[in-house]
Structure formats: C-alpha cells, structure tokens
Nucleic acid binder design. Structure first.
Lengths: 184, 184
DNA sequence: CTGTGTGAAGGCTTTCACAGCC
DNA sequence: GGCTGTGAAAGCCTTCACACAG
C-alpha cells in the first residue's frame, strides 16, 4: 500500500502499528535478514518491499494444488486471497471430480488417481488439504511419497509426515473455540 | 472417540500423541484446571470428557453470527465443522442479502442494518467476520457497539477493538506463506 | 511398577534501553 | 533530533526429572 501511495520512507513504529506488533519486534525481525533501514530516517519503502520479496517471494510464485473439493475446498477455490498473495492453485483433486458444483470453477478438478503424476510433472511442492478427517492421512501418504514438501492442513487430525515435510494446521472450529473461552 | 469406543482410561502419553504434543505438556495443561487423573492409572475417559466440557462446553453452545456472505463466507456456512463442535451459526449478514447464491443456504441471510438489533435480541457474543479488508473495521465498530465480545476475523487487517473484546485472526494467505518459507 | 502432578531448569521470544548513525 | 540495530533483561512456555499415589 505504501509503495502504491508513493510513500518514500516508513518508520518501524508506523509499520509495527499497521501489523499489530510492537516496534522493537518489527525491527528485530527485519534485522534478522539484514540491515534494511537507515538510522534516523526509517525504511525506504521501495527497497524494503524488494528485500521482503527476496525473502518470501522466491518461494511464493509456486503452483499449489488443492485436495478435496467439498464445502471447504470449493470455498478455498473461490476465495481470491491466495492469488492476491502470489499463489496460484494449479489444479484441484477429488474423489468425485464430476460432482455437481454450484458455480463454475476456474481451476480444473481431476480425480485423485491423477494426483501423483501431476505433482511430479509440475513439480508441485505445496498442497492444501481440505478432505474429511477420516481420509486425510491416506491422502497425505500419497502426497508425501509424490514429493510434496509442505501441506496446509484443514482436517482436524494430527498428520504423520516424513521429517522433511512441513505441516501447517488450520482448524476453523478450534479457532472459534479458542475465542469462546474468553467470552463472559 | 475414546468415549464412543468404551475405553475406560487413557494415559497422558497416549493422549498427547493423538494431539501432537509432548506428554508433560498435556499433563500441565490439564492440571491447570484441576487434578483430573489418577497416578499410576491415567485419566478416566468419561470423567475427563466431562471436565473438559465443563471448561469449554459451557461457553460453546452459543449462537454465532457470520458477517459477509461472499466466497469465503458462504464457504464457512456450508462448512460443517462449526456445528460438529457445538457452534450454531444463527444468522448471516451481508450488504447484498439477496445476491444470487449457488446452493440454497440453511441459514437466513439478512441485510447489514438488521445486525445490531439481532445481536441485542439474541444476545449474540461471537461473530465470524468474512468481509473484504476494506470494510472490516467499519463492521467491527458496529459489532462491538452492539455488544459482541469475540470476533473470528478472516480479513487480512489489524482490527481496532475495545479492550474487553477478543479478536482471533485467521489469514489463510499468511498460513500458506508461512509454509512456503520452508520449501526448498 | 505405572503414570500423574509439579518444582526446577531450560529455551525461546519479547521487551527494554540506548549506543550509533543519519 | 530521529530512528535503527542490538546487547541485556524480562517474561513466558516447554521440557525435564522425580516425588508421590494407586
């Protein structure tokens, strides 16, 4: 936003408020990757943006696949947030790829047995898992043996994966439950 | 699951493996709420389940409202995970409540101006926010001034709320980005 | 002998405070 | 004078190790 605004420099204080953290936190985090700022002035927006892209962006413009096109899965397909952040859902896979879908999808949906070859052919490294809990581990086994390196898991189960594979769990019901604990 | 299986007791070790944490962690967490276990034996499944319900359940059987019935919002409406965990989406609100929707919804969708009175009439305490980032803060102001106590926020912005209101942020794109940092 | 409950130790992250540079 | 970069302090959470109970 600052870049589009043409803002030239920004302080850790302003940035940290926008991000919802304290300013020394933000400075420490940035400093971990190098000295991006100028003392007395702040951070040059253009330069900072470029450096952050070097750190995050190289790994970001990657094809991602989605497994499971049920309620949550199709929601994720329609959700624009991934594309906006530089991720492209290259394909989706489902046990019933022809299952009637409400809105036309802009992403091809293939049957599950096409998954391993697709991963290898496109060297896909990231997968979003939106299948029911009961089938999740089996799918994960296929994913990892096909070479997937990271999984964003929406199924409410603890996945067993080889050491080099990273899993990030998002359990929407748990997020809600966390909150409910604080209401009076 | 253990309860349905008729299993009588379970050790912190078994439970912790299922939950994906270490066993002393699990014991400490449970011990925070009381001495639920028996030394040398483990935890009585029936009793433990009851105690956990006392801690979480009382706040759980609560009406929840959803704001924003776009891609993500309608996805969340169709997603069964909330109901399964004891949350009921009582109503949804949108600027265009009559906007054509693919699948019929089992939840009434009202226009935004109905929101404050609904919250007060039903004394709703929990809201799920699935509106675009640009409109989020304005909606939050309405929510909090109507008496909402906790917000599950899917908009990628830092929300400003009164001190007594709790916010839990879920940014799906950020979750994916976190993962992408680890791929080689 | 098994497995919980827990003080103590350890490790990690955040916050502070300020030297150093523009 | 302003703001970064950073060592040191503080705080928090996890892990360890074992006393204790069944």
């Amino acid at each position: 936003m600052l870049r589009e605004n043409g803002t030239e420099t920004v302080s850790s204080d302003a940035l940290s408020r926008a991000a919802g953290v304290k300013s020394p936190q933000l400075r420490k985090d940035l400093a971990y990757f190098g000295n991006f700022g100028t003392r007395g002035l702040g951070y040059n927006v253009e330069m900072l943006s470029g450096r952050i892209n070097q750190v995050l962006g190289t790994t970001r413009l990657q094809p991602v696949i989605l497994i499971g096109v049920g309620n949550l899965g199709s929601a994720l397909l329609h959700y624009g947030g991934f594309n906006k952040e530089g991720f492209e859902i290259a394909a989706a896979f489902d046990h019933e790829p022809d299952r009637v879908r409400s809105t036309p999808l802009s992403v091809p949906v293939y049957s599950m047995d096409k998954m391993p070859e697709f991963i290898k052919a496109q060297s896909v490294k990231l997968a979003i898992l939106a299948v029911p809990a009961s089938g999740a581990q089996q799918v994960v086994n296929q994913l990892t043996s096909s070479g997937i390196q990271a999984i964003l898991n929406f199924a409410p189960v603890v996945l067993e994966v080889p050491e080099q594979v990273v899993v990030n769990n998002v359990d929407l019901a748990v997020e809600l439950e966390n909150l409910s604990y604080f209401i009076r």
